[in-house]
Design a protein around this nucleic acid. Sequence first.
DNA 1: TTAATATATGAACAGATATTCATATGAAAG
DNA 2: CTTTCATATGAATATCTGTTCATATATTAA
Lengths: 112, 112
Amino acid sequence: MNECILHEDLAKKVKNKMLSDEILFDIAEVFKIFGDSTRIKIIYALKLSELCVCDLAFITNSTQSAISHQLRILKQAKLVKSRKDGKVVYYSLKDNHVIKLFMIGREHVEEL
Amino acid sequence: MNECILHEDLAKKVKNKMLSDEILFDIAEVFKIFGDSTRIKIIYALKLSELCVCDLAFITNSTQSAISHQLRILKQAKLVKSRKDGKVVYYSLKDNHVIKLFMIGREHVEEL
DNA sequence: TTAATATATGAACAGATATTCATATGAAAG
DNA sequence: CTTTCATATGAATATCTGTTCATATATTAA
């Protein structure tokens, strides 16, 4: 442990202003959800239209099972919602934060 | 492979409108960087002030080595920049996109 | 009831990733 | 030049994560 602390006052001041570990952890968790190709594809597809599982599998060139697993993760994270109609389950984005986050991420990538 | 495609026209239309796999991959990569507690802590600390490695280790309750590894990742992703002054290396956020992304992520978390 | 279809789920496996530890590099001080 | 200090880095390890495969559930049709 290199406990040097070159700028003690500054470092302590910053440490006091830090958000709680819990909040920072939760924020990281949200970004983690966006940090996977398959899930980002799902999110972008759902940004265009409400879709069912097999449509998403077709659109993302993935398997039904893989998509279903990822949709569960997205749903637990409250990023997507679903409605059931007979055998078919339709998924859509839960709110505008999801779209906002996606768009700013895209902006960032395209400006490099 | 369950090639059912319940809504063929819609699914094909959406598939055509999809961004390229490469762009979606890159977007996921950016979010992946934000998707780690240690890196989020670093980003938030740097949002408050330019800091050196050992300050960051102190602030995040982490080791010098762990922070240094993460800073390399953040730098490769062009999210932070550094300047050297003697033995000390000072890190800071590269641009406003980083702060924007962080803030919208935080908004999302706090509205759940 | 039985068959067919859409989705969900559990276990297993492979690949990715963060931390630790030891050590290297590079710069200033003595 | 040697020592000290701040940072960087490589290897090893343990953990996490996404996909696959097989199968379960649930709903509709026959």
